[in-house]
């Protein structure tokens, strides 16, 4: 697979590499960097401001990458404080900001020739190709790409929901999902999630499928037994109410929806002792993958859907000094 990438025509790799890098850089810029670099907070060099960037460019692009990745004493946090960003994206974001000043400096041809960094843009897009060939050509293309879009970027900074995953990136097909290897022949044979989700009821989180409703509405009928398609689950209709602290509504745990999917032995007694009051459950434990979090947050709907569990409204009790006595 490395060989295939290396023998790609120079032009192709330069073009696609630079385009993808520019996208990643712009994304990260709008999500993270723009918080300071749009307005110049804490002395950050402003996007598109040649005067801010000129002295910093003197040190070379590689040094700017290092500052962006590791942070500086002047106040730049490592990776802009977004430690989940990949190094490649951080560099692409630097490229994106540099492109803005190069485009603004009204001599678009000059920086192409002067592009200093040996491995600037292509690492973001084509990490496995060592790609010295693409390195020379890519900065030029990324500058062009950024120049074309720089007019729109001002609007993007204040766009809605900049921290959320864009709708177009939900439920991607395996080859584009980031963990499947797109050069693996088996990957292309796999089903794309959206192909299956079409008729299923929607939800706001996780797979964005309401799996419980999907069974209720008989959109799917997953087998209860590996071999026997007619075996039916033993559904227990028993609600357990857990009173919770603070103002949150009490939790109603429905056995019904759970026993549609699971066997008693899946939860009892290892995860939940089948006795009222015997289980210490906290949101912290759930977030860390214990108790309800064994499934919720991994495969069942995540904890962002508070109201699905916290569903029983508390009776209004006016604040009284004697309130504890009623417990």
């Amino acid at each position: 697979m490395k060989i295939e990438r290396v023998i790609l025509p120079v032009l192709m790799s330069a073009f696609f590499g630079a385009a993808a890098a520019a996208d990643a850089g712009k994304d990260l810029y709008t999500k993270t960097c723009a918080v300071c670099h749009a307005a110049g907070i804490a002395g950050a060099p402003r996007y598109g401001n040649v005067g801010d960037w000129q002295p910093r460019l003197a040190g070379g692009t590689a040094r700017l990458y290092a500052s962006a990745l590791k942070g500086t004493a002047k106040g730049m946090p490592a990776k802009g404080g977004n430690l989940t960003a990949s190094d490649g994206d951080v560099k692409a974001a630097v490229d994106f900001m540099l492109a803005s000043v190069k485009a603004a400096s009204a001599s678009p041809a000059k920086p192409v020739a002067a592009a200093p960094a040996p491995a600037a843009a292509p690492v973001a897009a084509a990490p496995k190709a060592a790609a010295p060939v693409a390195a020379a050509a890519a900065p030029a293309a990324s500058i062009d790409a950024a120049a074309n879009t720089s007019g729109a970027s001002a609007a993007d900074i204040n766009s809605f929901n900049r921290l959320l995953k864009p709708i177009g990136k939900r439920n991607p097909p395996p080859a584009e999902d980031g963990i499947h290897d797109p050069v693996n022949d088996g990957t292309v044979a796999l089903m794309a999630p959206l192909a299956a989700y079409g008729p299923l009821p929607k939800s706001l989180a996780g797979n964005r499928v309401n799996w419980v409703k999907a069974i209720d509405e008989k959109k799917i009928n997953p087998r209860w037994d590996r071999q026997d398609a007619n075996a039916a689950p033993v559904v227990i209709d028993l609600n357990i109410v857990r009173e919770v602290k603070g103002s949150m509504p009490d939790v109603v745990y429905p056995h019904k929806q759970h026993t549609e999917w699971l066997d008693c032995s899946n939860c009892h007694p290892a995860i939940f002792v089948p006795q009222k009051g015997a289980n210490a459950i906290s949101m912290a434990a759930i977030l860390l993958g214990e108790k309800c979090g064994v499934c919720h947050g991994k495969v069942a709907f995540p904890v962002s859907e508070c109201r699905l569990c916290h569903s029983k409204k508390k009776e209004f009790r006016p604040a009284q000094a004697t309130a504890p006595a009623t417990k």
Partner: peptide, 26 residues
């Protein structure tokens, strides 16, 4: 630095991309 960049990019791009389907187990 170039080698470091290439290495970092490989690591980052192979592990740090949270786009796959919810619940996929590697």
């Amino acid at each position: 630095f170039a080698i470091l960049l290439a290495f970092a990019a490989i690591v980052a791009f192979d592990t740090d991309d949270a786009r796959a389907e919810y619940g996929d187990v590697v």
